[in-house]
Design a protein around this nucleic acid. Sequence first.
DNA 1: AGTCAGGATGTAATCGTTAACATCAGGTGC
DNA 2: GCACCTGATGTTAACGATTACATCCTGACT
Lengths: 328, 328
Amino acid sequence: MTKPPTIRDVARLSGVSTATVSRYFSGKTNALAPRTIESVRQAAKVLGYTPSEIGRSLRLAQSRVVVMLVPDATNHFTADIAVSVESALKGIGLSMVLANTGENAAQQDRLLADAQGLRARAIVLQGAIDTPRLRELVTTQGNLIFANRRPAQGIIAPYVGIDNFQAGLAVGHYFIARGYENWVAIHGPRHYFGSTARLDGFIAGVGDASRVLQFESPYTMQAGYEHACRLLDHERKKYSVFCANDMIAYGFYRAAMERNLRVPDDLVIFGFDDNRLNEWLAPWLTTVKVPALEFGPAIAELIEMPKPGFEGGRNIILPFELKVRQSA
Amino acid sequence: MTKPPTIRDVARLSGVSTATVSRYFSGKTNALAPRTIESVRQAAKVLGYTPSEIGRSLRLAQSRVVVMLVPDATNHFTADIAVSVESALKGIGLSMVLANTGENAAQQDRLLADAQGLRARAIVLQGAIDTPRLRELVTTQGNLIFANRRPAQGIIAPYVGIDNFQAGLAVGHYFIARGYENWVAIHGPRHYFGSTARLDGFIAGVGDASRVLQFESPYTMQAGYEHACRLLDHERKKYSVFCANDMIAYGFYRAAMERNLRVPDDLVIFGFDDNRLNEWLAPWLTTVKVPALEFGPAIAELIEMPKPGFEGGRNIILPFELKVRQSA
DNA sequence: AGTCAGGATGTAATCGTTAACATCAGGTGC
DNA sequence: GCACCTGATGTTAACGATTACATCCTGACT
């Protein structure tokens, strides 16, 4: 209710100047006399003083928040990345504000403006959408970081994530090695560069595009379910399905269960992303494991490092892994 | 790279004073001449100006961020609440910063201090831990809101969530109505008031404490799994298990599956919380559905309303629902 | 004793915004 | 013509912190 104590209050109570108090809280304690340190500590404690991050940010023209924009915060994999990032940022003294674009370009641009307003130290985008405003910020601000998916090929900015083409390729090769037939690819939205890269990799892996049934799909369970219903009710075969992410795979699986199909006897389902819950709730799901927990440290590193020698785009490519479970 | 334009730059370019620009961006446009509005709009656009939230916060002694502290961000239900809150806050012009306490008292207190530093408009705690610092803030700041679980009985502060005792009671009554035997309650940590309330309700519902096997457990899959292993390997019965949350239930289920037990023929499993994924991945789970998506609007309302007539603690009690799936 | 180095601390300008108050022009009522 | 009002805009003092620069003190060296 009453306004919080300021640095001046602490200074007055401990009988020193605000500069000294500031030095104490900025960790410049080796420039202070032990007696002074103690009296400031005491006064701050008595008053319950916490330095105002706002005053500090204003003075330093630099805030300590990082904005993370996610396309769908209810996606468990997305959330895992957010958690990893939050934890790593906290480790270097930063806070994370989370916001949901809902895969909506206008909403994303609005949130980017908000992030500007907060003078965010960095803006991390999972699944960014390619808009003029985004491109403008990439060039003018240079504090954007793309995680997991790049919005487009031409954009030069730091990226953290796997090599999507290689991952798709690995799945394609696996399909060939196991002799799977009746290939189906339920791929993500074409406007994501990453989705297309996964699909291209997969097709390169199986080696024959004409034999791959392709469906474009939003990254949701509902969409996966609907694609599966259409496919399975149209013609029943032992399909080998490569889903663009695990959500789609969950949806597909449900449709298969409703038709009493068994995995992997009647159907092979491949997902993409993997998260902690799969081990417990989806032991039938074989998927490409993307190391969600490694995003945090990687992004923290990109933020801390001042600048690389060359222009823009440092990349941190994380390893992926084929996580084979019962379905294969 | 170059520092962002300030209100002064816009004022200079459009030939008006900073006050006028400020008025424009504070939405006081009906006090401005149309010609002025247009020239400010133009200038701001040319410069790419976005008002500094930091400057504004400093001046107003009030920031627009709300800090949300969660005990375990990887819990899907917890995340659903966070998403709901973020979305509702965005609707009233606020941002959410998310932080993870990891069920750790010291970490929570550290984060509370950070929230103070940010001059957070409000602090929302899911699953707060009762510490002296917490109690101090509740009384001195009055901007704390408890969601889903209260830390303790004595604390007077706004609360949003279900009535845990009633929910436990409903489960107990259901057990009786269906004639379930061999009651087991894997309840949450005792230091959470909410956990205890659920357990007390359940016991009241079944009516005979002495016939309830009780285990205290962390809210994790691993813990649920371990309790299940011990219980099932000790003596095999058709247990009726009430788990403190869905995570624990997932863990219990896995142990049951490994032993080829079938739900609900060999075992009844009850969870608590429910989330969107259950419908798809855990159709065997009967659970108490807590309306995660209603937390956001409720919390936004608590933050917006200045103060109730009486001291502290307004509560918003949300409805719960028994979500019966295959397991029962 | 005088000079000087260097450690400890104080003074004051500054960051970007808001809002109370001041100003000013033009219109209205007498 | 004067007083007064109103609507549009300008002036300026905060808000809470940091830091370059100034100051003061103590002790060491010549």
